[in-house]
């Protein structure tokens, strides 16, 4: 009875020992990975902050203005004057000019079973 218990305990201890050993090394590996990932994140954040700063610099009006001035002539750029602004209501509507005669002829042709537009399209497709 005692002997079997001892044997069981002995093997349990050996197993536990092996388990703890494996666990320890696993933990160390994971910790290393974690540090590596953290370094990577830090590096990426650094890169990101530099890229953000780059973008902010490149999109600043104080950076763009000299470029615009340099290419003013070749691109024919001009500052818009106050007189050139208008509102959408200033644009007149398209004049109502319907070619009544042609429309009537088309509708009559359709009624008679002839489709001049369809025929034209078919001709194009055949070609």
């Amino acid at each position: 009875m005692i002997r079997t218990l001892n044997v069981i305990l002995f093997f349990t201890s050996v197993l536990a020992l092996a388990g703890v050993y494996v666990l320890k090394y696993q933990t160390e590996t994971i910790a290393d990975e974690k540090v590596a990932i953290q370094r990577d994140i830090a590096q990426q954040n650094t890169n990101l902050s530099v890229l953000r700063a780059d973008w902010a610099y490149l999109s600043q009006p104080s950076h763009i203005e000299p470029i615009v001035i340099r290419h003013e002539d070749s691109l024919e750029l001009k500052v818009i004057s106050a007189k050139q602004y208008g509102s959408i209501t200033d644009i007149p509507m398209r004049p109502q000019q319907v070619n009544d005669e042609a429309l009537t002829r088309l509708l009559e042709a359709l009624d008679a079973g002839v489709d001049p537009i369809g025929d034209k399209l078919n001709e194009l497709i055949v070609q």
Binding site: A42, N45, T46, S49, V50, R52, A53, A56, S59
Partner: peptide, 10 residues
């Protein structure tokens, strides 16, 4: 639009 931002420098 950004006016001031942080850059990480080593």
């Amino acid at each position: 639009e950004p006016l001031a931002l942080d850059i990480e420098a080593p």
